[in-house]
Amino acid sequence: MAAAKTVVNYQSTWFQRLIRDIKKSKHYYILMAPFAILFFTFTIIPVIMSLGISFTYFNLLEPPQFIGLDNYTKMFLEDDVFIIALKNTLILAVVTGPVSYLLAFVFAWLINELGPKLRSFMTLIFYAPSISGNAFLMWLIIFSGDIHGYANAFLINFGFISDPILWLKDPQYMMLVIIIVQLWLSLGVSFLAFIAGLQSVDKTLYEAGAIDGIRNRWQELWFITLPSMKPQLMFGAVMQITTSLAIAQVSMQLVGFPSVQYAGHTIVTHLIDYGTVRFDLGYASAIATILFLIMITTNLVVRKILRRVGE
């Protein structure tokens, strides 16, 4: 009898085995169900929907009308503002992405040398901006366009400039202001991940390294620290890339929405413009799809590169 059963099990197809595995894992699916349902409803299905709607004209009142690739051709060939937004987004991402990533790592690394008390204090100092709600509006006063703005007053007092600069209204300076404030806000989740990663590097590796001829802290960083915390570096990269490509709040609150000559316009503010102001949901979805593709591609490419660190 027992032998017969084994034979049956042996002969069962992969499909029967799959069904049996699924039945056996019933409890796991039940535990995952609430999250999975919400996750699919508000994250996975919307991505697919966004792709679908992007081929239509849809204003929420009338049923969507299929218009093929019209939204995409309009975006790249006719919509000059989108091109400005794309350019601004890429500039912001190329500057704030790598710089904020480096800053997060460098500060985490410097802080790691301090004693525990000072270390938690400095962690707080660097992390606090990213969780401080709308405290970044303080920069409105710092970069205010009159002579009472702190930046202007400082520069005039020390004779760098004679007339106040309209930091938030002059297209020449808007991107600079957005970059500064975004960098100020950017030591977030990845910064904490780096601090934690540095603390968990095996200390004996450094002693072994010193014996093996590592001369200074830079060699130590490249040959021991970085390879040991590669997983955290990967995670931090994902977080920084995603944030740096989605800059919108800082731009909208500081330089206005829309900003003068669209000088602070980004893909996300363009998306907000068409999605919630003009209610052209088809076009908004096309913008969202392009943004989605840019984000995923950048992430996958950077991950490929980071895998080589320390090799």
Partner: peptide, 18 residues
């Protein structure tokens, strides 16, 4: 993991519809 790679703004429009 893939959903960490794009910002929630991407899904804002369909989310509103849903």
């Amino acid at each position: 993991v893939y959903s960490l790679m794009f910002a929630p703004q991407v899904t804002a429009t369909p989310n509103y519809i849903i």
